[in-house]
Simulated scan of single mutants.
Amino acid sequence: MQSIRRAHRILRALADSPDGLTVTQLSAELQLPPSTVHRLLAVLQEEQFVSRPDGKSWCYLGPESLRIGLAARRPRVTSSLRAAEVVSELADTFGQGALLVELRGRRAESVLQCGLADWAGGYAGDLMPFHAVAAARALLIDMDRAEVMRLLSEYEFLPRRARTPGTVTELLQRVDTVRRRGHETVYGEFVPAVWEFAAPVRGGSGQVLAGLAVVWHEARTTAEQAVRISEQVARAAREISQEFGYAC
Score class of each variant (00 low, 15 high):
Arg12Cys: 09
Ser57Thr: 12
Phe157Gln: 00
Arg228Glu: 12
Thr167Ala: 05
Ile240Tyr: 13
Ala98Ser: 10
Glu64Lys: 09
Ala91Asn: 02
Val194Arg: 10
Asp142Leu: 00
Arg150Gly: 08
Ser27Trp: 01
Ala138Glu: 12
Thr185Trp: 01
Glu170Ile: 03
Leu21Val: 02
Ala226Pro: 03
Ala136Tyr: 11
Val133Leu: 02
Ala15Val: 00
His8Glu: 11
Gly211Phe: 02
Ala98Phe: 05
Asp92Val: 09
Thr167Asn: 03
Val50Phe: 07
Thr164Cys: 13
His8Leu: 15
Met1Val: 09
Pro165Val: 07
Val194Asn: 05
Asp144Phe: 05
Phe190Ile: 04
Arg181Cys: 08
Val87Ala: 02
Arg52Asn: 14
Arg12Leu: 12
Val77Phe: 05
Ala199Pro: 01
Phe244His: 03
Arg163Pro: 07
Ile4Leu: 15
Ala84Gly: 14
Ala98Met: 02
Ala162Arg: 14
Gln242His: 08
Gly125Ala: 07
Val168Ser: 07
Ser241Tyr: 07
Ala236Trp: 05
Gln173Gly: 08
Met149Gly: 05
Tyr60Trp: 07
Phe244Cys: 12
Thr24Leu: 08
Leu11Asn: 13
Ala13Trp: 06
Cys59Lys: 04
Glu85Val: 01
Phe190Arg: 11
Tyr60Ala: 06
Val23Gln: 14
Ala223Lys: 01
Ala83Phe: 03
Arg76Glu: 14
Glu184Val: 08
Leu151Val: 00
Gly188Thr: 10
Gly206Thr: 05
Phe49Lys: 13
Leu70His: 10
Glu109Ile: 02
Leu209Cys: 10
Gly105Arg: 04
Leu158Asp: 15
Ala146His: 09
